[in-house]
Design a protein around this nucleic acid. Structure first.
Lengths: 204, 204
DNA sequence: AACTTGCGTAAGCATGCACTTGCATTATAC
DNA sequence: GTATAATGCAAGTGCATGCTTACGCAAGTT
């Protein structure tokens, strides 16, 4: 019985295949790319790919797992509480953006592939949820400290999350003259400006 | 020479195939669904599908074209100018949402398929652009009327657009307890509240 | 009655692709 | 020096799928 002999999962080959898969999957979608293409990009024989991961779907799972493993949830929110609404928000968001920018590929994959592969989407949602919760907690904290007006915090958090997440993908597709308007800095600034102008009780 | 004889494009069959295609494409992606599946859903023989559209890609194009043809750009922005920032925005957004809700499928398709089929994405972008332009013009109009503070209007428009567009797709995937927080009404309200609280010179 | 149009049915071709098998090759370990 | 682990290479299998061909049938048109 030729049991699928899994080679050591720590080799360089393993990693290279995963990185290649991540690239191809996000570029053309799961169905849209072939294992051949992944192998080629990894500089590896196609057979090696199967020896490592068994089948294509398992490769997807491994790639997602790898990618998610790289992300770190936002540190404890308490540390943001001392700052003003404006500064705290800015820090929270930029910290989060730092995570995202390195993982924007997998997030986009998660969005486009979420129907055909709910498991994949779930993993991502779990991560995004952490930030959502952090945001809401942060708002409620600020509100309790009377540094912020009352508002529909879940929706507010949703708004921020969506904008932050979509910006990189919009960025990738947008024509050159629009990208200029969509630098991370400007988006974050406008986001924070708007929220603190609207709800801050510190300023003015 | 068996030239592809295009049957009349006004038949019921034609429409049913397009609707089926729209459904399947958005469900599983272009590569993810087969012409057989589309035909089956349309209650039509697969051959008929090819007789109408020649090939799969042409079907995609026809489906997108059909869908986009259903959308109407926002009416002339002038009519919103008389209203307050809050009321004008609300009207602009709800009007736009009306369009979107009937076309959310195709929009999601556009997003997920935009890399492999840029033409498709282009058509959609063109539509979205119209709203973006309308929004920016509206803001500038309000600003000129001194009914609104200065702001980064393009980014602000981007923020609104993104939130509006993403909400339906998030809605589809989100667990039940989150959907409650994401009714169109609440999202629009928070959006408008936030913007007008932040930038309106009418209120307070 | 003959022709056209729109569709169905059956069968099949060609290709791409996930996945397998068998064998040769290198390197490392013991 | 021999066993073992990790990879490459050549070839192939089986299935899904896009697309075609050839034929038949019903309804409307002329």
């Amino acid at each position: 019985m030729s049991d699928g002999t899994h080679p050591g999962t720590e080799t360089q080959t393993h990693r290279r295949i995963i990185l290649a898969a991540l690239h191809e999957f996000t570029q053309s979608g799961y169905k849209g790319c072939s294992t051949r293409a992944v192998a080629e990009r990894a500089g590896v024989n196609e057979v090696t790919l199967f020896r490592h991961f068994g089948n294509k779907l398992e490769l997807l799972r491994a790639a997602v797992e790898y990618s998610v493993g790289q992300m770190r949830a936002p540190a404890d929110i308490e540390s943001y509480f001392n700052l003003s609404l404006r500064d705290g928000l800015t820090k929270l968001i930029t910290d989060y953006l730092l995570q995202l920018s390195s993982q924007s590929d997998i997030l986009m994959l998660g969005f486009s592939e979420s129907f055909s592969h709910p498991e994949v989407a779930d993993v991502l949602r779990r991560f995004i949820w952490q930030f959502r919760t952090a945001l809401i907690q942060y708002f409620e904290g600020q509100y309790a400290q009377k540094k912020m007006k009352e508002a529909d915090f879940p929706v507010l958090a949703h708004m921020l999350l969506i904008t932050i997440h979509s910006t990189p993908s919009v960025h990738k597709r947008a024509p050159e003259d629009v990208k200029i308007h969509l630098s991370d800095e400007r988006v974050v600034k406008t986001l924070v400006d708007t929220v603190s102008l609207a709800y801050s009780l510190d300023e003015l």
